[in-house]
Amino acid sequence: YHCKTPDCKGWCFFEDDVNEFTCPVCFHVNCLLCKAIHEQMNC
Rank of each mutant, 00 (worst) to 15 (best):
Y1D: 13
Y1I: 14
Y1K: 06
Y1A: 09
Y1V: 07
H2Q: 15
H2E: 03
H2P: 14
H2C: 10
C3S: 01
C3R: 00
K4I: 08
K4P: 04
K4H: 09
K4F: 13
K4L: 15
T5A: 10
T5L: 13
T5H: 09
T5W: 12
T5I: 03
P6L: 05
P6C: 02
P6E: 08
P6S: 07
P6H: 04
P6A: 10
P6M: 07
D7R: 10
D7H: 08
D7L: 08
C8W: 00
C8T: 00
C8L: 01
C8H: 01
K9A: 13
K9L: 11
K9T: 14
K9R: 13
G10K: 03
G10T: 04
G10N: 01
G10F: 05
G10S: 03
G10L: 00
G10M: 03
G10R: 02
W11Y: 12
W11Q: 14
C12G: 06
C12Y: 14
F13A: 15
F13S: 14
F13E: 15
F13C: 10
F14Q: 06
E15A: 11
E15T: 12
D16Q: 14
D16W: 05
D16H: 12
D16E: 13
D16R: 14
D16K: 15
D16V: 11
D16T: 11
D17A: 12
D17R: 11
D17I: 07
D17P: 12
V18Q: 14
V18W: 04
V18R: 14
V18D: 08
V18N: 07
V18A: 11
V18S: 11
N19T: 14
N19H: 07
N19K: 15
E20P: 01
E20I: 04
E20V: 05
F21N: 06
F21Q: 08
F21W: 14
F21A: 14
T22F: 07
T22E: 09
T22H: 12
T22A: 06
T22R: 10
C23G: 00
C23T: 02
C23I: 00
C23D: 03
C23S: 00
P24D: 05
P24G: 05
P24I: 00
V25W: 05
V25H: 11
V25P: 02
V25Q: 09
V25T: 05
V25L: 10
C26T: 00
C26Q: 02
C26E: 01
C26S: 01
C26Y: 01
C26K: 01
C26G: 02
C26I: 01
F27L: 12
F27C: 11
F27W: 09
H28I: 07
H28A: 14
H28K: 15
H28S: 12
V29A: 05
V29E: 05
V29C: 07
V29F: 03
N30R: 01
N30W: 01
N30P: 01
N30K: 01
N30M: 00
C31P: 01
C31F: 02
C31V: 02
C31D: 03
C31L: 00
L32K: 13
L32C: 07
L32F: 05
L32M: 07
L32W: 04
L33K: 15
L33I: 09
L33P: 14
C34A: 02
C34N: 03
C34D: 09
C34W: 00
K35A: 09
K35R: 12
K35S: 12
K35F: 09
K35Q: 12
K35D: 09
A36D: 12
A36T: 13
A36E: 14
I37D: 10
I37N: 07
I37Q: 11
I37L: 08
I37M: 08
I37F: 05
H38G: 03
H38Y: 02
H38K: 02
H38S: 03
E39M: 09
E39H: 09
E39Q: 12
Q40V: 06
Q40N: 13
Q40M: 05
M41N: 15
M41E: 15
M41F: 08
M41C: 13
M41Q: 15
M41K: 15
M41V: 12
N42D: 13
N42S: 13
N42Y: 10
N42G: 15
N42T: 14
N42Q: 15
C43Y: 04
C43R: 06
C43I: 04
